[in-house]
Amino acid sequence: MPFINFATKEINCKIVYYGPGLSGKTTNIKWIYDHIKPENRGEMITLATETERTLFFDFVPIEVSNVRGFKVRFHLYTTPGQIIYQASRKLILKGVDGIVFVADSQEERHDANLDTLDDMIENLKDYEIDIEEIPLVFQYNKRDLPNILPVEKLRADLNRWDRPDFEAIATKGVGVLETFKEITKQVLKKLKK
């Protein structure tokens, strides 16, 4: 749910990176954090295990000023992908304005992609969020690895709503910005309606 303050001229929106364990969600927002101008970002928070797996969430606040003096803040969150953190995953989705589904392109991870997508659909239902309505982008990550599925297969199985999708190599920053720009564009467009 976007929050607008007309006194301080701020608009706040929440964007969540969702996907199976190790698909590269944290890598995406870390890359954004590392490449954004320091004056446009707040502190990055990571609540992770000792092995750098997300335990609860990662958080990066990003601030954009537009010419008419309004400031837009995007709060980027990642969910924990591991199956055992199902309950935490749901909590992060509360009040979400836009979702990036980060899929792992590797063949052996495809079942995990599908299960996680089902889990996301269920959670959205519980919050009474209509998946047809919410801004949503797909990212097929890890395109640099050998054992990957063709994009057509990933698209057919995951992107059932025909939303914009991108191939990515998040560790190298390939496709990361494109994905981020698309989701922010959709979220801002939705504000207008």
């Binding site: 607008i4 608009i11 490449h35 954004i36 101008k37 446009n40 990003i62 954009v64 537009n66 010419v67 008419r68 309004f70 837009v72 910005l177 981020f180 720009k181 922010t184 564009k185 801002l188 467009k189 504000l191 207008k192 309606k193």
Partner: peptide
Amino acid sequence: SSIPTEIDVEDIDLDTLFE
């Protein structure tokens, strides 16, 4: 119903965010 016209989201330029 919707956000007032004083906010023009078209003006927002994400390219300026990155170095």
